[in-house]
Design a protein around this nucleic acid. Structure first.
Length: 269
DNA sequence: ATCGGGACCTGCTTGC
DNA sequence: TGCAAGCAGGTCCCGA
């Protein structure tokens, strides 16, 4: 799936096409997503216009006249803007047809994604989320305070959406490399100066990935069907055994909480 | 209360 | 070439 940069890339891609447009019809071909898609959604949103498209964590929020469509891309989801009449392919589970005769089409092979309609933003999935990583709320002070309260490694800590949202496996590996911190270091033992480097690294790597249109490994495509280009910027993710770009030593790999972890023994302490 | 692991799915790559 | 195992960008939920 898309991590935060991919979701933000998608948001920026679709907004100009659907903002101000009226929903003519919403079609659910397969309701079996992470949570079953409510059968009442098509009726609820028909005739409503899109006021704005925003993002909270990795959720896309389509603000309508009287509510919100909330969409998560899961691990393999993507959104495309297509001319109406474009035949659906396998795994194209949801279409939103607009009065512009364009379709917003949701594809998700693994069906880990989700779609909700709600009339307030007071939703349990949004209620306990940590700060946005690119906001000022995600600061050294904040992260030091949270780290003191836990006993777990820094990588798992960083990927916990209660702590900070939007940092998935790729960018956690990348940020720890830039910060020079070993992934298994206990979060509570990271000194302030290094935590400051980590906060800066998270912001930098996410911002650069957004600028590049996200990272495309296999599934992710932008709304226009093109890939993102951040893959070429990756320092450690997917490079186990290869030479570190900084010191040329071989990159080490291990699994932390069952997620592929790659780091440089020499550059990360 | 915190934490790790399992579970949810399909498709692609790898190794026998 | 064929088949099975392993792995993939997320994250909720359960039991320890």
């Amino acid at each position: 799936m898309p991590e935060l940069p991919e979701v933000e890339t998608t948001r920026r891609g679709i907004e100009p096409h659907i903002r101000g447009r009226k929903i003519r019809q919403l079609l659910v071909r397969d309701h079996r997503l992470r949570w079953p898609v409510d059968a009442g959604i098509p009726q609820s949103v028909s005739g409503q216009s899109v006021i704005s498209v925003s993002r909270r964590a990795k959720y896309l929020l389509l603000e309508l006249d009287q509510g919100w469509l909330m969409l998560h891309l899961g691990m393999s989801g993507s959104l495309r803007i297509l001319p109406s009449g474009t035949p659906p392919e396998t795994h194209d589970h949801v279409d939103v047809l607009f009065d512009s005769n364009q379709i917003l089409r949701f594809r998700d092979p693994r069906r880990f994604g989700s779609l909700f309609y709600m009339t307030t933003l007071d939703h349990p999935l949004l209620s306990k989320l940590g700060p946005e990583p690119l906001s000022d709320d995600f600061s050294v002070d904040y992260l030091m305070r949270r780290a003191r309260q836990v006993r777990r490694n820094i990588k798992t800590f960083l990927m916990d959406a209660d702590i900070v949202v939007g940092v998935g496996n790729i960018y956690a590996n990348e940020a720890l490399f830039y910060a020079g911190i070993r992934p298994l270091t206990e979060a509570g033992k990271v000194r302030r100066a290094r935590m400051a480097r980590l906060v800066a690294a998270v912001k930098m790597v996410l911002a650069k990935a957004i600028d590049a249109g996200g990272t495309s490994l296999r599934d992710f495509l932008r709304e226009d069907g093109k890939p993102g280009y951040f893959r070429h910027e990756l320092q450690v993710y997917g490079r186990e055994g290869e030479a570190c770009f900084a010191c040329e030593g071989p990159l080490t790999s291990l699994r932390i909480s069952n997620r592929a972890t790659v780091y440089c023994r020499r550059c990360q302490r």
